[in-house]
């Protein structure tokens, strides 16, 4: 138990010190945390046995929500931008969720994809409002009504992303263990019994779906605010696929795995593209192949297996 907690705590401490010991990694890790939070949304859905190939929709809606907030209210504070971006993601999650929550498996996955691609087309075609393929700028907002320089702003965004990743990660894990979360997880195994408990599977599905939209939205708004620009690529299917990829890499269904998976993905992608040119996708693809074939529990599964082995050896020793 001690070692199980020690390693994540040490990792967290190292992460918290990154801006001081490895400032070059700070933005990269902020983006990784943003993606990790979004991937937590996919992870939540996976607990109900469903996978979405369109959750970049909420990633993009929140980021565009933030961009529109800053366009309509120049100089708006970070909190205001966040709130509007997340409200946009949650509201759209409810609206789309009401429709897709009655579908399962491939139909659920593809309907989500369809919605995200419709939104992508709207972003591309409504050039006068959305900036088309060029996207929209997100000028730096004030933080607690104080204008910050770039360096300080990026530092705030790093710690905000870290705090949100931890807070939302904790909340997601608690939620999955809560009565609502446990009901949501039963979608995977027995919807017939769920109905005979007096519950609507669609409504149960919707609760988890909205939470996943919220998480993707938080990821999207952080990403947009850090990059300072949001483009239709945020809603593109490749982005949704990337989220599923990271979720599998981290350990399908594991909330901490989503964050670790996102960090590894972002680091591998950045350095592989720098050192291996056009073959970084090959590197990542091979990595995923190895995970699926030899460690289907993902990074979280590998970690848990190693910890079990250590705990087992300790017990044997005693």
């Amino acid at each position: 138990m001690f070692i199980r907690i020690t390693i994540p705590t040490l990792l967290l401490m190292v992460l918290a010190l990154v801006p001081f010991v490895a400032p070059g990694m700070q933005v990269l890790l902020t983006l990784a945390l943003a993606k990790g939070i979004a991937v937590m949304g996919i992870t939540v859905l996976l607990r109900s046995g469903q996978v979405s190939f369109g959750h970049a929709l909420y990633f993009a809606i929140a980021a565009y929500g933030g961009a529109f907030t800053l366009m309509l209210m120049p100089g708006a504070d970070l909190i205001v931008v966040f709130v509007f971006g997340i409200i946009a993601a949650v509201l759209s999650g409810i609206i789309v969720g009401l429709f897709v929550a009655r579908y399962r498996f491939i139909f659920f996955a593809m309907l989500n994809l369809a919605f995200s691609m419709i939104f992508w087309s709207i972003l591309e075609k409504f050039y006068h409002y959305t900036g088309g393929a060029d996207g929209m700028r997100l000028p730096r907002p004030t933080v607690m009504w104080i204008e910050l320089e770039r360096g300080a702003y990026e530092l705030v965004m790093f710690y905000l992303a870290l705090a949100l990743a931890l807070g939302l990660g904790w909340f997601s894990m608690r939620w999955l263990d809560s009565p609502t979360g446990q009901l949501f997880r039963t979608i995977k195994t027995n919807e017939t019994r769920l109905q005979y408990l007096g519950m609507s599977p669609q409504r149960v599905m919707l609760t988890g779906y909205v939470l996943s939209a919220l998480l993707c939205g938080v990821g999207g708004i952080i990403m947009g605010l850090v990059q300072g620009v949001v483009t239709p690529e945020y809603a593109f299917w490749v982005r949704s696929g990337e989220m599923v990829f990271i979720a599998v890499l981290g350990g399908a269904g594991s909330v901490p795995g989503a964050l670790v998976g996102a960090a590894i993905y972002e680091i591998v992608r950045t350095y592989a593209s720098a050192f291996a040119g056009d073959i970084w996708q090959l590197v990542l693809g091979t990595f995923l192949l190895i995970i699926i074939l030899f460690a289907p529990g993902g990074i979280a599964g590998i970690y848990s297996g190693v910890m079990d082995r250590i705990a087992g050896k300790k017990e044997e020793g005693e």
């Binding site: 909340f171 263990d177 809560s178 009565p179 609502t180």
Partner: peptide
């Protein structure tokens, strides 16, 4: 889980 459905338990952070 049956009692969660019966009593409409909604606390999002208390473990079942």
């Amino acid at each position: 889980i049956a009692t969660a459905a019966r009593d409409r338990l909604r606390n999002p952070i208390r473990a079942l």
